[in-house]
Amino acid sequence: MENNLWQHILHVRKTSPLVHNITNYVVMNNTANALLAIGASPIMAHAKSEVEDMVTISNALVINIGTVDEYWEEAMVLAANKANQSEKSWILDPVGAGASPYRDSVLNKLISLNPTVIRGNASEIIALAKANTTPTKGVDSTAKSDQTVEAAKKLVQNYNSLVCISGETDIVVSHDRIIYLKNGHPMMTKVTGLGCSATALIGAFTGVIDDKTEAVVAAMSLIGIAGELAAEKSTGPGSLQLHLIDKLYNLTEEEFFAHLKLVE
């Protein structure tokens, strides 16, 4: 797999996939800039009257429930249904799963539509799978990602989705593989929305790459390695954001393979 990952990154840069994001307004700017930096094109559209049209012209759909309300809920369901009808990849980011009954009711509707990929932190994945009562703390994880594999397997089995667990070690779980990525930097947790940006990158990669497992791994390795290299130049979270966008844009093949930490 390792030899294919860089080719996937180059493919995204070359094809410039169009990614439709129904995402939370805390991270829209960050998400759009991250997509542009890797060579993709973002659409941020939430109106019920146009989301189906936007899905039709896009390569992939990203749904992030961070600032969901009743209006956005309807738009999300319309868009996810359209993605399924159009056989487009769509990615679910279950931000704050388990934090409130309303949020969980929205997620129950969305997950029943069988997202291509689910990406969340450990607590969110556990809450989504209802595997145990591990509490969530807002959008922050209170569980270790390596404790969440069984919950992820349950989601894979029940919804035929790939699951990506973000954490100190990122874990990608499919029907027949479990892949561990040990890239990234602790300072990345001090910047809001980097997990949301990772979800958007997954959308870009799955939109144009047939092997969805490799697409998810390529996206997560790219943002993890970019974060590591950005942290080397940064004095704090503010400058990390700046350097991360730059490194998503100008990461080289040599840097990628020198830092990739992948275990199957």
Rank of each mutant, 00 (worst) to 15 (best):
E70M: 03
E253I: 06
V55H: 14
L229G: 11
L128H: 05
L10E: 15
L10R: 14
L107S: 09
P115T: 04
T169L: 06
V26P: 07
K109I: 07
P237Q: 10
L10I: 13
L201P: 04
N250W: 01
K82A: 14
G120T: 00
I57G: 10
T192P: 07
K153L: 10
D140P: 05
P94S: 02
M76P: 03
L36A: 02
M54R: 06
Q147R: 04
S166P: 05
K130Q: 15
Y71Q: 15
T136K: 14
A127I: 07
V106G: 08
E264F: 00
A47S: 14
L201A: 08
A40R: 06
G120S: 03
S166D: 08
E74K: 15
K144R: 13
G39Y: 03
I165F: 04
F256Y: 15
N64R: 09
E74I: 13
I91Q: 05
N29Q: 12
N4F: 12
S174Q: 02
A99W: 00
A258D: 15
I171R: 03
S49C: 09
S86R: 14
D246F: 00
I125F: 01
L92K: 02
V216F: 04
E254L: 11
S239E: 14
L107V: 05
L18C: 03
I22H: 03
T142G: 01
V117H: 05
T142Q: 15
H11Y: 11
Y159L: 02
D170G: 05
S197Q: 13
N33A: 09
S221T: 15
I178E: 15
Q241C: 08
I223S: 14
N132T: 06
V51I: 12
L251N: 06
L248H: 08
I118R: 02
P94W: 09
D104M: 11
N108Q: 13
Q147N: 15
I223C: 12
D211H: 12
A34Y: 03
A226R: 10
D53I: 05
Y71D: 13
D176S: 14
H243M: 12
E214H: 04
G138F: 00
A47L: 11
A258N: 15
V19S: 05
A131D: 10
V117W: 00
S100W: 04
V149D: 04
N21V: 08
A258S: 15
M44D: 11
G224I: 12
S234V: 07
S105Q: 13
V149W: 01
D210E: 15
I43C: 05
G224H: 10
G236H: 09
L155E: 03
N121S: 11
G207K: 07
E168A: 15
A34M: 09
A83P: 08
L35W: 06
H175Q: 14
N33E: 05
E264Q: 10
A226D: 12
S145G: 07
L5G: 10
K130M: 01
I43S: 11
M28F: 01
K247N: 13
I22L: 12
D104P: 01
A83K: 09
V191R: 01
L194V: 11
K190I: 00
A79N: 10
P17Q: 09
A80F: 03
K247G: 00
I202R: 05
W72K: 14
T189L: 08
K82F: 00
A45L: 10
D246H: 04
K109A: 01
E124D: 09
A40C: 06
S100G: 01
I111V: 15
A218H: 09
A122F: 03
P94Q: 06
K212N: 05
T189M: 07
